[in-house]
Simulated assay, not measured.
Amino acid sequence: MGPTAARKTELAVQLVERLPCEIVSVDSAMIYRGMDIGTAKPGPEVLARAPHRLVDIAEPSEAYSAARFREDALREMAAIVAAGRIPLLVGGTRLYFHALQHGLSVLPQADAAVRARLDEEARALGWEALHRRLAEVDPVTAAQVHPNDPQRIQRALEVWVLAGQPMSALLAAGEARVVLPYRLVKLVRAPRERAVLHARIATRFEAMLAAGFEDEVRGLLERGDLTPELPAMRCVGYRQMLKYLDGDYNYEEMVQRGIAATRQLARRQLTWLRAESSCEWIFDEADPLATALTMIERGRRNAAPAG
């Protein structure tokens, strides 16, 4: 696990070359086909060294859920174990890791009328106002959702309206009912200094632009079936590029906002990871691979069976 731009993939590939592991991606953006540059998806040369499961499994026009991820991930993990190997889950999507480890409680199904009402209120008041409302009824969820994330704000408020309970409470109630049938060794790859991560994020975003990120998004728009409201198009970087292509941002503003949004994502990921239990942190030591191998061996000896 780790924040974006933490060099998780680099370490994971090294582990695959040393251990009988296969990678299962835990990334809510890499699932989409055709979204390669802006998601920092591993290139063909990396995938040749270490194939990734659950990459390129959905169209950007689809709404891929955490529940579907859990089902897909458990299936792939079972296949890896059946082949005598070990699943190595790699990514930074908190909701997916949480769904896999703890399951998902039964939340109310989406309600078109409630969503339409919330959309209307958002147009009149703004999503930041709805985020403040969410903080009043469900402060736990509000603390995990950015005020500029309309999809998650809407869903959390929708759950509150339909269930009469905070989404965080419903999720917590469901955790005790799920036992993951695996022993877990949780490794977190992250720079020790926040400034280092910020510099990597800026460098990577500039590299994405140089690699043709703008052309990638233009090509996606030419499909004709993608709108800014789709989860895929709300991914960090894509949202800012769409604003630029629509004329809402100039080029420099798009770059700065894209970098800033990525930094905000990294900050939220680090907040989650610091609260996650039983994690081993791998900072930028001289040899992260050796550190990881030591941690894995210690975890293998000490981890008790799940349940």
Rank of each mutant, 00 (worst) to 15 (best):
S278Y: 12
A163M: 08
P305Y: 07
V236L: 04
A210P: 04
V46D: 02
T93L: 07
M208V: 02
W272E: 02
P181E: 05
A79R: 12
A304G: 12
G34V: 03
Q101N: 10
T203Q: 13
D225H: 10
M1I: 05
L134C: 06
R68F: 03
P305V: 08
G43D: 15
A67C: 10
L242E: 01
R49A: 11
R194E: 15
A306D: 05
L293F: 14
L209Y: 03
P44E: 15
Y96V: 04
R274L: 11
A5I: 02
A82S: 14
P139T: 06
S168V: 04
A124E: 15
F97G: 00
F97V: 00
R200D: 13
G247T: 03
P139G: 10
Y238E: 06
L226T: 02
K8I: 03
E175G: 09
M254G: 02
R234L: 08
L221K: 12
I23Q: 02
A66I: 06
A58K: 15
A207N: 13
G299Q: 02
F213C: 04
W281R: 10
A66G: 08
E206I: 05
A12I: 01
A110V: 04
G219L: 07
R85V: 01
E71S: 15
D72I: 04
L162P: 01
T9S: 15
A63W: 12
E280W: 13
F69Q: 00
L226C: 08
R257L: 10
F97D: 00
A210C: 07
L273A: 04
E71D: 14
P108S: 08
R94N: 04
G258S: 13
R94H: 14
R218Y: 09
R70L: 01
A129K: 08
H198T: 07
R152L: 04
D27Y: 04
A5W: 01
R75F: 12
R274G: 11
A6G: 13
P191Q: 09
Y249K: 09
D248V: 12
V16E: 02
A113W: 06
R133N: 03
I37T: 01
E17M: 11
K8V: 04
V140D: 08
G92V: 01
Q144W: 12
Q264V: 13
A78D: 14
M295C: 14
E285G: 15
I31C: 09
L197M: 13
L130Q: 00
M208A: 12
V255P: 00
D287Y: 13
C21Q: 03
P288W: 07
T4P: 02
P166Q: 03
L47G: 03
R183S: 14
W127G: 00
A207L: 12
Y244S: 05
A122Q: 05
L230K: 07
G219Y: 07
P108L: 06
R123T: 07
